[in-house]
């Protein structure tokens, strides 16, 4: 039981990170119907900015942990958003309205580019940082096992919840959110009623990149070690999460992320850690076979 609880906590933490990345995929897919393959790399860039940020802050001798995390979060979100914007502007916008596979190939090219760009500029070795948030709460303690909830896990889960609430408000209450929902339904009609479609799509990429940056900072804090390759793995997991939850659906992305995180944690704990990705993908395939639109997706209506 204690062991189960501990794995549930670990799974939730991991799932929260996947969920944040998955939102980027699901939003972009909802609006322009393309798989943004480079999104995983955006998250990786967020993590690298976090490593650089924390290193500089520690060299400057800033010891206040909340202050350091806040600064790094803001800086990472800002710079990563620019990357998100630039990716859309360079690789996707010229291909809008082209046939379906063109942006996908261009996105794969962008993913290869960014991954190697970071490898060349930042080095191929793993980047370890000193643990920044330490300690935690002991929830339950029995003779053979202690269930603990570390402060960093609390931070990750809280940040995710806050972001999700804020983000839902953004989508449902603001003019930008309304524009996004309009674009999701029909780009041409949206532009006819005076919505600046280009701007809306750009902002969607910027917001997605911002959330990915938060996930990148969190994963840096959580594991304390990153390399240029983390984007790919997290990217396909997060995309799987988006599909699992029903692509285009925001609560679905979060739910899918949590499910994938939990599956991974439990599978690693109770079965073999080597085959955890196998479990993730098997569940994805099973869900898609029996519920092809994902858990919370709307059924696609085909018109002749």
């Amino acid at each position: 039981m204690e062991y189960f609880l501990q794995q549930a906590i670990n799974g939730l933490t991991l799932g929260a990170i996947y969920g944040l990345v998955a939102i980027g995929y699901t939003m972009v897919y909802g609006i322009i119907g393309m798989i943004n393959f480079a999104h995983g790399e955006i998250y990786m860039i967020g993590a690298f900015i976090a490593v650089i940020g924390f290193t500089i802050l520690s060299m400057l001798g800033i010891s206040s942990v909340p202050f350091a995390i806040l600064i790094v979060l803001i800086v990472a979100i800002l710079f990563t958003s620019v990357y998100g914007w630039a990716v859309e502007r360079i690789a996707y916008r010229p291909l809008r309205g082209s046939f379906r596979l063109a942006p996908l190939i261009s996105a794969i090219g962008m993913s290869i580019f960014l991954q190697n760009y970071v490898q060349v500029l930042q080095g191929a070795r793993v980047k370890p940082i000193q643990p920044i948030v330490t300690g935690g709460l002991t929830l339950m303690s029995s003779s053979h096992f202690t269930v603990s909830l570390s402060y960093i896990q609390i931070l990750i889960i809280l940040t995710t919840v806050v972001l999700m609430v804020g983000f839902s408000l953004l989508i449902t209450r603001t003019a930008l959110g309304r524009a996004q929902r309009a674009c999701e339904q029909d780009l041409t009609m949206a532009s006819l009623v005076g919505i600046n479609v280009d701007r809306t799509i750009s902002l969607t990429f910027v917001i997605g990149a911002g959330l990915a940056a938060v996930a990148g900072v969190m994963v840096t804090l959580y594991y304390g070690v990153i390399d240029f390759y983390i984007g790919f793995q997290a990217g396909i997991k997060a995309f799987a999460a988006a599909v699992l939850g029903g692509i285009g659906s925001l609560p679905g992305a979060m739910l899918g992320g949590l499910l994938i995180g939990l599956v991974e944690a439990f599978w690693s704990a109770y079965f073999t850690i080597e085959y955890k990705d196998l479990a993730t993908f098997s569940i994805l395939i099973l869900v898609l076979i029996f519920r092809p639109t994902g858990l919370l997706g709307r059924p696609e209506v085909e018109k002749v």
């Binding site: 063109a102 261009s106 962008m110 580019f113």
Partner: peptide, 13 residues
């Protein structure tokens, strides 16, 4: 590989 990725984007665009 950086050039390769850039070339893929360039050809597609």
């Amino acid at each position: 590989m950086v050039l390769f990725g850039a070339a893929m984007i360039g050809i597609m665009v």
